[in-house]
C-alpha cells in the first residue's frame, strides 16, 4: 500500500509539520508499503534536502516562489491520487490542509477524519483519536481504508531531516494546472515585526476571551508591565480588535516559546496550544476546571482571573517597592 504524506512550504521555507506528516505515515507502514511525500511549490530543492525519511518524493514544481492556492494544490494532489492509488492520504491541519482535505474527500468520496492526534493501523482498518469541541473531547474513531486524515501539527514528532536520493524524486509538470487555477494569488503580506516580536519575548501574559471586554485589557497590561512581559491575546481577543494582530498567539498567530507564559481566561483550544505549548513555564488561570489549557499548564488556578490579576499585581508592586 502507498501512504501519501502531504507537505507544504512557500517563500523559500518548508513548513515544520511536513516532517511530522512523513513521520506519521512512517509509523503506519506494513511490509511492502511505501511512504510517498507530496510537495507542491517552488521549493523543490529544499524539499529534496529534507524529506529523506520518505521512500519517494513527488514534486509538483512551480517556477515562481508563490503560494499555491488550496484548490490548485488539491487538483494536483488529485492527479497524484489517481496515478498512485494510495490507501491513505495524510494532510496537515493547516490553512491549506483545511481546504484540501475535505475537497479531496468530496471528490473521491473517501472517508475523512479531521483534527487527528493518534493513528493505529491493522491492515486496512484504522483506529484514530481525533479532537472535538475545542479539545475538550477525544473521539476514538474507526475508519476503513482508503481514507484521508487531517492531522494536527504537533501530534507526531518530526521525522529526521535528511536528503532524499535524487533517483527517488519525481517532478510533476504542474504548469498547466497552476496556470489554469480558478483562484489566483495576488498579494502576500508578511508582517513587520519591528514593533513587537512575540517569538523573541521571554515572558508573555496572554489574555483570552475570559477578559470580557476591551477596557479590562489594561488590567492585564499593567500586570504584564510588572512582570516585564509582553501582552498577547488569543484569537477572539484579536478578532475583537482589543489587541493588534501581531500579538496573537496560535495557529494563525505567532508560535512562541517564552520562559513564562501566563494565560488568563484562555480555554486552550488546539489552535491556541499549537502556538504556546512549548513554553518553559505555563501558568493558566481559568474558572473552568475542565478547560484544556490545564492539560499543558505547569501550574493551574481555577480562580477568577480578575481576582488573580489584582492580588498578584498587589504583591508584585509591594515586592518591587512601587
Amino acid at each position: 500500500m502507498k501512504l501519501i504524506a502531504c507537505t507544504e512550504g512557500h517563500s523559500s521555507k518548508i513548513e515544520a509539520f511536513s516532517l511530522e506528516m512523513i513521520a506519521a505515515a512512517r509509523s503506519l507502514v506494513e511490509a511492502g508499503d511505501e511512504v510517498v511525500a507530496f510537495f507542491a511549490g517552488a521549493e523543490a530543492d529544499a524539499a529534496s534536502s529534507l524529506f529523506g525519511a520518505a521512500d519517494r518524493l513527488l514534486v509538483a514544481r512551480a517556477s515562481k516562489s508563490e503560494l499555491i492556492p488550496a484548490e490548485t494544490y488539491a487538483r494536483l494532489l488529485r492527479d497524484v491520487i489517481d496515478a498512485e492509488a494510495p490507501g491513505l492520504v495524510l494532510v496537515p491541519y493547516s490553512a491549506n490542509g483545511l481546504d484540501v482535505a475535505a475537497d479531496i474527500a468530496a471528490r473521491t468520496g473517501w472517508p475523512l477524519i479531521s483534527y487527528v492526534n493518534e493513528i493505529k493501523r491493522d491492515g486496512d482498518e484504522l483506529t484514530v483519536v481525533a479532537q472535538m469541541y475545542g479539545g475538550k473531547i477525544l473521539a476514538d474513531c474507526a475508519v476503513r481504508l482508503p481514507a484521508i486524515l487531517m492531522v494536527n501539527p504537533g501530534a507526531f514528532a518530526e521525522a529526521a531531516a535528511s536528503p532524499i536520493d535524487s533517483a527517488k524524486v519525481s517532478m510533476i509538470d504542474a504548469e498547466a494546472v497552476l496556470a489554469g487555477g480558478k483562484v489566483k494569488m495576488v498579494d502576500i503580506d508578511v508582517p513587520d515585526y519591528a514593533d513587537v516580536d512575540l517569538t523573541k519575548a521571554e515572558r508573555i501574559v496572554c489574555v483570552g476571551r475570559g477578559i470580557g471586554d476591551e477596557a479590562s485589557i489594561d488590567l492585564a497590561r499593567n500586570l504584564a508591565t510588572l512582570l516585564g512581559a509582553e501582552i498577547a491575546g488569543s484569537r477572539p481577543v484579536v478578532d475583537n480588535g482589543w489587541l493588534p494582530k501581531l500579538r496573537q498567539v496560535g495557529k494563525s498567530g505567532q508560535k512562541v516559546k517564552p520562559k513564562l507564559y501566563l494565560a488568563l481566561g484562555v480555554s486552550g483550544a488546539p489552535e491556541h496550544l499549537e502556538g504556546m505549548s512549548q513554553a518553559d513555564l505555563i501558568i493558566a488561570v481559568n474558572t473552568d476546571p475542565k478547560a484544556p489549557i490545564f492539560n499543558v499548564a505547569h501550574y493551574g488556578a481555577t480562580c477568577d482571573l480578575f481576582d488573580l490579576v489584582a492580588n498578584l499585581g498587589d504583591r508584585l508592586r509591594a515586592g518591587s517597592g512601587r
Binding site: I113, T287, F294, G300
Partner: peptide, 27 residues
Amino acid sequence: SAEIITLRLPVQGGSGEILGDNADTVA
C-alpha cells in the same frame, strides 16, 4: 465517513499542579 466508537474526556492535568480557586493563596 467513519464511525465514532467512543468519546472520552482527555486525561486531565498531565504533570501540572493545580493551585486551587482562592486568588489570594494562588497569588
